[in-house]
């Protein structure tokens, strides 16, 4: 669905994206994980034709370069900033952006109704967006992105500033879109979200794509050993790194016994730490 080949983008002295290549299949949810300033949004902006790569190429759905208007019709975007008109109702917002995507007449009407229903805003569609909660605005942002039924959907930090309930609702919508064979690129700096939703994850830092694999694949390759933390009956605390936590716990039990224990398996945070030498959340 999306093929990115060695793209590079530089702003002044800053190389925002450098030699990034990846290929995303139809119906896949691809997570782009990295701290702020890693180059995720620049990559997304090149994927939707907002920026032209200085080098390399991008092709969408076999139709070509996203700077081409016809190719952009295949793409839907929910930007990180809430790109909605507060003075207009939810319905007016979705209808307006539907028109911008070339929808007209009954098709526009049907698609607007579907999008509002899809994100659970049908009952509040006549209210002004300014009266919506943060989570509702995020859902409206998503409704606008999917109103024209895009084949490729780019979600840029779609859960920033939303409550856990709305976050779960957004996850459900994303999974439902995958069922509809929509290809999704999901940028986030929340590793839990990437782990929960994404079929594959690409880890970016300082403009480079450091690794691409499934979540398990990344952890197995770059996560390193699990951490075992145990307390002996006399109160002594034991902490160790191991590739086989069960075997290590068995050994501790046999040598003096265990009162409590805790195993920390490697995760994407650890993967990022191992790949970059610093923690993801420090950024």
């Amino acid at each position: 669905m999306l093929v990115i080949d060695s793209i590079r983008k530089q702003f002044g002295d800053l190389v925002a994206v450098d030699s990034v290549s990846l290929s995303i299949a139809a119906g896949e949810i691809f997570g782009l994980l990295g701290p702020n300033g890693a180059g995720k949004t620049t990559t997304v902006n090149m994927c939707v034709g907002l920026l032209r790569p200085e080098r390399g190429s991008i092709a969408i759905g076999g139709a070509g370069d996203p700077t081409n208007k016809d190719v952009r019709r295949l793409v839907g975007v929910a930007p990180q900033s809430l790109a909605i008109y507060d003075e207009m109702s939810g319905r007016e917002n979705v209808t307006f952006f539907g028109k911008m995507q070339g929808l007209r007449g009954s098709e526009l009407k049907d698609r607007v109704a579907w999008a509002l229903e899809f994100v659970g805003l049908a009952d509040r569609q006549k209210d002004k967006a300014s009266e919506y909660s943060g989570g509702m605005k995020r859902r409206l942002n998503l409704a606008i992105a999917v109103v024209h039924k895009p084949k490729l959907l780019l979600l840029d930090e779609p859960t920033v500033g939303v409550d856990p309930q709305s976050r779960n609702a957004i996850f459900e919508h994303i999974l439902a879109l995958r069922e509809m064979d929509t290809t999704i690129i999901y940028t986030t700096h929340y590793m839990e979200e990437a782990q929960r939703l994404c079929d594959r994850v690409g880890i970016m830092d300082r403009g480079n794509l450091l690794a691409i694999d499934s979540v398990d694949g990344l952890i197995n390759t770059h996560g390193g050993a699990s951490r075992v933390i145990a307390t002996r009956p006399d109160g002594e605390e034991v902490e160790m790194q191991t590739d086989d936590p069960l075997a290590e716990l068995q050994r501790l039990q046999n040598n003096g016994g265990l009162q409590t224990f805790h195993v920390e398996r490697a995760n994407l945070e650890t993967v990022f730490l191992n790949l970059t030498g610093r923690a993801l959340r420090d950024e």
């Binding site: 034709g49 208007k69 952009r72 930007p79 900033s81 790109a83 008109y85 911008m100 070339g102």
Partner: peptide, 14 residues
Amino acid sequence: TRGTLVRLRMAPIS
């Protein structure tokens, strides 16, 4: 500033 311009520029219009 509110980001709607970016959204408009991502739409298939110039």
